[in-house]
Design a protein around this nucleic acid. Structure first.
Length: 285
DNA sequence: TAAGGTGAGGCTGTATCCAT
DNA sequence: ATGGATACAGCCTCACCTTA
């Protein structure tokens, strides 16, 4: 588990994914939260739910009233065994999911209270505080389950969880091998399923095609290397798993909105790429 | 109901070329 | 050397179907 405060930049930087589940609470200010093609306006008290390794996202601050968040990220195993149903809010199809819980809803207020308790508990580090943190995490996830329940549970959580669990070896394979020219066949082999079944599983469970998920990993890595290194675009394209410069330029420009070179130029002016939302004042539990 | 096969159509990677 | 455009073969996705 990690918890930390973060103030997003006032300009749009690249979206990222990470392998932990994440809950974010806007402590103050205004801004925007981008999840792929979705954009949410953010105000104090809003809560955001992010799944693991699939949906790219990034927060941006209003220049006049910069936003400040506290982000809690955790591995599914942090909930303990036999509590898989509490992961349901994080097992969603991004095209159908509302990542924001508006501040005026009771669930957002409950989560706000719990997140603040979480911060206080960690900072105080009283005896056996780790158990208190685990308890607060269970409460947080329970509030989320109750909030999303009517839409997310629909009486068949075990099937949804099983499918999500079935996908994990495939997602892990993609994370480990996206720099190589992997295909649906390779991912299918990692899942011990047919190509057909693998493609169904990804699109049905996540609402995102296999190809798109691999592409997200490659583009994110390419943006990082463009911003943080002086390596030529050709080298970066190949290092990130693109089979050619042409496909790299095409997908980069389509997705990011500017050419790779332009992105490097702008990121140099910004002096920032993207930061792990929990990287500032990060507290490792 | 889950797993998986098939085929059409769209998309992607490759090869090649040109511009800077 | 690097950035970018384009045509085309092959792969991927999707819808629909069959099988167990």
């Amino acid at each position: 588990m990690h918890i930390g405060e973060h103030t997003p930049s006032t300009y749009a930087v690249s979206q990222h994914t990470h392998k932990e589940l994440e809950i974010g609470l806007c402590l103050e200010g205004k801004g925007w939260f981008y999840f792929g093609q979705k954009t949410y306006e953010v105000k104090q008290g809003d809560v955001f739910v992010v799944n693991a390794g699939v949906e790219p996202h990034i927060a941006q601050s209003d220049p006049v009233h910069p936003s400040k968040y506290v982000f809690l990220s955790f591995e599914p195993s942090a909930l303990g065994p036999d509590r898989q149903e509490l992961l349901l809010p994080f097992v969603y199809r991004s095209d159908r999911f509302q990542n924001r819980i508006p501040a005026e809803l009771p669930a957002a207020q409950q989560i706000g209270t719990l997140m603040r308790q979480f911060m206080v508990e960690y900072r105080s580090k009283e005896e056996a505080y780790i158990y208190m943190l685990q308890g607060l995490l269970l409460q947080l996830c329970t509030v989320l389950v109750r909030h999303y329940g009517p839409n997310a549970l629909h009486g068949d959580w075990s099937r949804a969880m099983r499918r999500y669990g079935d996908l994990q070896p495939g997602l892990a394979f993609i994370r480990d091998h996206f720099r190589e020219p992997i295909t649906a066949k390779d991912v299918a082999a990692a899942l011990s399923l047919s190509i057909s079944r693998t493609l169904h599983l990804f699109s049905d469970t996540l609402g995102t095609g296999l190809k798109q998920i691999i592409l997200q990993h490659r583009l994110h890595e390419a943006m990082r290397l463009l911003a943080e290194t002086d390596r030529p675009a050709t080298e970066i394209a190949l290092a990130c798993g693109f089979q050619s410069l042409a496909s790299f330029y095409r997908k980069f420009t389509e997705t990011v909105g500017v050419s790779p070179l332009e992105f490097r130029r702008r990121s140099a002016h910004m002096a920032v790429f993207e930061k792990n939302p929990a990287s500032e004042e990060k507290l490792k539990l």
